[in-house]
């Protein structure tokens, strides 16, 4: 009897240990390859040139003339691009999930933009957006631009550039969100949706009442991953408008790392920006998870 309880308890403890064992390799991995440089950056951000503790680095970042524009530009990009990309990706995923004839090849085509390397993306948009580029050429061929008429894509206000950046980024990033959503859609049993139709639901009520709730954890994943990446957007910005023309947060880090790495202030600015970006991303991610209900106790599986 006592023995039985013992094994029972042991099994229970064993069962409690299992998840930790499964997660442990990840923690080891991060500690081995990632943690030290991160801690170094953190320490660096609080260290003055003379090696003393200081908050001055952060003050420097906050008073940097480019900080507020960078924060503003990043926020605009994040809000618009995450929303836009998510809804288009969801639409595409639902579309492809209907498995119409040709949907396989359609999926393949929509996935190609994410497979392009930076050098191809750079060549593509630089030749596209330049005044004598392929976009204006195409518009001329289509008769939208009159002979000799030109649109100066890269001239003008920062708002225009932000809009361009959001569209270009969307073109490349939508497939990566779509494949996560599509993977999630595969696991929703057809029978469940069919039941919805049987009880008189139309496509949209079934979508809203059955499909999307079942997809919620996948949606959370897709959005959170995109949110984190969107706050850290920089490469496409540099490729198209160069450094400092349209500052965004991580572009500032890269600027101090690559453009002016040897300035006295560069390590301080780079580490300060790095930590601030990390904090901003964390808060945004937490806020999203909170709002989307990821921390609420999960209801029982259907």
């Amino acid at each position: 009897m006592a023995l039985a309880i013992n094994t029972e308890r042991r099994r229970k403890i064993g069962k409690q240990i299992v998840p930790y064992l499964l997660v442990l390799p990840v923690l080891f991995y991060y500690i081995a390859f990632w943690a030290r440089p991160v801690v170094q950056q953190l320490v660096q951000s609080f260290t003055s040139l003379e090696g003393q503790f200081t908050l001055n680095n952060y003050i420097m970042v906050f008073t940097d003339l480019n900080f507020l524009p960078a924060l503003r530009n990043t926020s605009i990009i994040v809000v618009f691009s995450v929303t836009l990309e998510f809804f288009i990706a969801l639409l595409l995923a639902l579309l492809i999930n209907r498995k119409f004839p040709g949907s396989g090849i359609f999926l393949f085509l929509t996935m190609i933009p994410m497979a392009l390397p930076a050098v191809a993306v750079g060549a593509l948009w630089k030749t596209g957006l330049t005044t004598n580029g392929w976009i204006n050429s195409l518009l001329t061929y289509l008769g939208i631009l009159t002979e000799g008429g030109k649109i100066y894509w890269l001239a003008g206000s920062i708002w225009k550039l932000l809009a361009l950046m959001i569209i270009i980024d969307a073109w490349q990033v939508i497939p990566s969100i779509m494949i996560i959503l599509l993977a999630g859609l595969q696991n929703i049993p057809k029978e469940t949706e069919e039941a919805g139709y049987v009880f008189g639901g139309n496509y949209f009520t079934v979508l809203r009442k059955i499909t999307l709730p079942l997809l919620s954890s996948t949606i959370q994943t897709a959005v959170i991953l995109r949110l984190i990446a969107a706050i850290q957007i920089w490469l496409i910005v540099i490729v198209i408008v160069g450094f400092s023309r349209m500052p965004v947060l991580v572009e500032r880090i890269v600027y101090y790392h690559e453009e002016v790495p040897r300035l006295t202030i560069s390590p301080a600015m780079a580490s300060g920006y790095t930590i601030i970006v990390t904090i901003i991303v964390s808060i945004a991610a937490l806020a999203y998870l909170w709002v989307s209900g990821a921390f609420r106790r999960k209801r029982k599986e259907v």
């Binding site: 330049t130 005044t131 100066y152 894509w153 890269l154 001239a155 023309r245």
Partner: peptide, 13 residues
């Protein structure tokens, strides 16, 4: 050039 603020290297232009 109207797009002068985005120009990095004049060769292409």
């Amino acid at each position: 050039m109207p797009t002068i603020l985005s120009v990095d290297n004049c060769v292409d232009f």
